[in-house]
Computed example of a mutant assay.
Amino acid sequence: MAKTIVIFEQDQDVKDIMEYVLKDSGYEVAITNSNVSDINISKCKPDLVPLVSNSPLISWTFKVFGIYHGSDLIGLTEQMAALLIIIGQFKPQTGIVGASIATAMFFITSTLLISTPSTLTINHIGSFNYLSLLGLFLFKDIISLGASINLVGKFGEKANSAFQNRK
């Protein structure tokens, strides 16, 4: 049984892209030109709903906080990690915290490749094979996971060096 996603969007190009990505992932899509501001799904990123809903690790955020506040919580976590990483250039202990948050966040979002239907589907165009668009969208999180793990190590070295210099 397919899940239906409702898209509230004025821009036709955005509608076409979202419809293609969601249908490629096995969802039925209903598109409306109505600008209904009191429906929560219109206020959050449409690509976040099917991803988070299928995740056993973070689907609780939408159940507990609702779609609007749940997506805000995810976005706030990303912004907090980025801010702590920037501050980490001057205070490495803070950078370790920020990079650790980013590592946890990117680990969780990397698991969406497994939990979301059709993300690992191989599409064929001529003689080329590639992941579905949703799979490619999530693949960047694997690269970001590696980068954030590297940042934890770099900030750790910097903090250790600063600690050694104090002695």
Score class of each variant (00 low, 15 high):
S55L: 09
I17A: 11
I85R: 01
Q89N: 14
Q12T: 12
D141C: 09
D141Y: 15
T94P: 01
K23F: 12
Y27W: 07
F8S: 05
S71V: 02
S71A: 12
S55H: 05
K154M: 10
G153C: 08
A147Y: 08
Q10E: 14
L51W: 04
S100R: 02
S42E: 07
A2T: 13
G146H: 09
I41S: 05
N160I: 09
G98T: 03
I39Q: 13
P56H: 08
F106T: 02
G126R: 07
I114Y: 12
G70V: 02
T32I: 08
N33S: 11
F137Q: 05
S110G: 13
I125E: 07
N33K: 11
K167Y: 14
T77K: 03
Q10H: 13
E28W: 13
N40V: 10
Q10P: 04
V21N: 00
S59R: 03
Q12K: 11
K167F: 12
N160G: 09
S144A: 15
W60S: 06
I58C: 00
V152L: 07
F107K: 05
W60T: 04
L51M: 15
V64S: 09
D47F: 15
G70M: 02
A162D: 11
M105K: 05
I101W: 04
A159D: 04
G98M: 03
I114N: 04
L138V: 10
V52K: 02
I122P: 02
D16R: 13
Q93P: 00
L73G: 01
G146R: 08
F106M: 10
A99D: 03
Q12V: 10
S132H: 05
S53P: 00
H124D: 14
L76A: 15
S132P: 00
G135F: 01
M105S: 02
L113W: 05
V6L: 11
P50F: 08
F65E: 02
L120G: 07
G146C: 10
F90W: 14
T111L: 06
D16N: 15
T61M: 05
K63R: 14
I5W: 01
M1D: 12
I114A: 08
R166I: 08
L134E: 03
K43C: 09
S37V: 11
G146P: 03
A82S: 10
G95M: 01
E19D: 12
F163L: 09
V64Q: 08
D13A: 14
L51T: 03
I108N: 01
I67H: 00
N35Y: 10
A159F: 06
G88Q: 01
I87R: 07
T77H: 06
Q93T: 06
P46A: 12
L113Y: 04
S148M: 05
I85T: 02
N40H: 14
V36L: 15
Q12I: 13
I41E: 08
L136D: 13
F8R: 09
A2K: 14
V52H: 00
D141P: 00
T32Y: 08
F137I: 11
I39K: 09
D141R: 07
G70Y: 00
H69L: 10
A102P: 01
K3H: 13
L76K: 15
S42Q: 06
K43S: 12
E9A: 13
L120K: 12
F155Y: 06
L73I: 15
